[in-house]
Amino acid sequence: MTGIAILIPIALGLGLLGLAAFFWSLRSGQFEDLDGAAMRILIDEESPEGDA
């Protein structure tokens, strides 16, 4: 029983953490441009100041 008392809060806490992370990423616009994100990794950064 003591095992459960520790493990269940941990499991729920981790799940909630994932949910919170998802909400955060949704709010910060990380799902706005999914195709673009896949493309951007191919761009060679030429501008030395790395602006924008």
Binding site: G36, M39, R40, I41, L42, I43, E46, S47, A52
Partner: peptide, 14 residues
Amino acid sequence: HCAGCISKIENGLA
């Protein structure tokens, strides 16, 4: 339609 377009537009406009 490609990664090149993205950087061309973003860097070019900047």
